[in-house]
């Protein structure tokens, strides 16, 4: 009798697990020459090569809609996506998994309120190297690496894109129509980004300016929904 009860208990629990929707997730990846990005790896780039030592960016204020109806958001506002820590590339949608939506919106970068609210913790902690120290404000997108096409010291390039003050507000809102039946995977096409950008002419952007504003718009053009 005891044995039957245990079997019955396990069966019921197994069915409950099967009947629950899998927790959905949003992931952020980057590619170069069609391959998944590996930091500190040499890729062919024109007649030369290129490597990326650092890629980090903020995703904030993720919201879901069904047509024009607001469906919901997730509990946390800011996510630091850091390619040296792959776990950060995955954002679990615990509170959204069981509802229907067909549009996702999010910011690339941090909003002005978070830029003027003093010392923060968690993903906004300045220990992550995403806060300018010589002036206030978060670096929304950081891409660093080297390529011989750059006539800079050690052929390095540094793109620290941020700024919350008009007219150089670099936070960008992205909107994608989605099929909610699957996980959402976004890809940043680095080949496209650096080819539009002409690395040989512009290899250091490290403060809010016209150039950083333009660069932030170019990043948006290089992010696609891959699945």
């Amino acid at each position: 009798m005891k044995f039957v009860t245990v079997i019955l208990f396990l069966f019921v629990n197994f069915n409950i697990v099967l009947s629950q929707d899998k927790t959905k997730a949003v992931s952020f990846n980057a590619s170069i020459n069609g391959e998944k990005l590996q930091l500190d790896y040499n890729y062919a780039f024109g007649d030369d090569s290129i490597s990326f030592s650092n890629l980090k960016f903020y995703i904030s204020d993720i919201k879901f809609y069904r047509d024009e109806e607001f469906i919901g958001s997730i509990g946390k506002k800011n996510f630091l996506i850091d390619f040296s820590q792959p776990l950060t590339q995955l954002i679990l949608l615990d509170s959204i998994s069981n509802v229907h939506y067909n549009r996702i919106e999010f910011n690339l970068g941090t909003d002005s309120l978070d830029n003027v609210s003093g010392a923060m913790s968690g993903d906004l902690d300045p220990i992550h190297g995403m806060y300018w120290t010589w002036q206030s404000g978060y670096i929304n997108f950081k891409l660093e690496g080297s390529s011989k096409v750059c006539p800079s010291r050690n052929h390095e390039f540094n793109f620290h894109i941020g700024g919350y003050l008009y007219p150089f507000t670099s936070m960008q809102r992205l909107v994608f129509e989605v099929n909610q039946s699957s996980d959402l995977s976004f890809n940043l096409d680095l080949s496209k980004l650096i080819s539009i950008h002409h690395l040989q002419n512009e290899y250091n952007i490290m403060s809010p300016s016209e150039k950083s504003l333009l660069f932030s718009k170019r990043i948006v053009d290089c992010i696609n929904l891959s699945k």
């Binding site: 003027v116 003093g118 010392a119 300045p126 220990i127 120290t133 010589w134 002036q135 206030s136 404000g137």
Partner: peptide, 24 residues
């Protein structure tokens, strides 16, 4: 350059000619 007293100290801590350190 600094918009909030709480984050002001990051500037001298990090400046190469002031404290030349980092918050980490």
């Amino acid at each position: 350059a600094i918009n909030h007293l709480d984050v002001q100290a990051l500037a001298p801590i990090s400046h190469s000619k002031e404290m030349a350190s980092s918050i980490q």
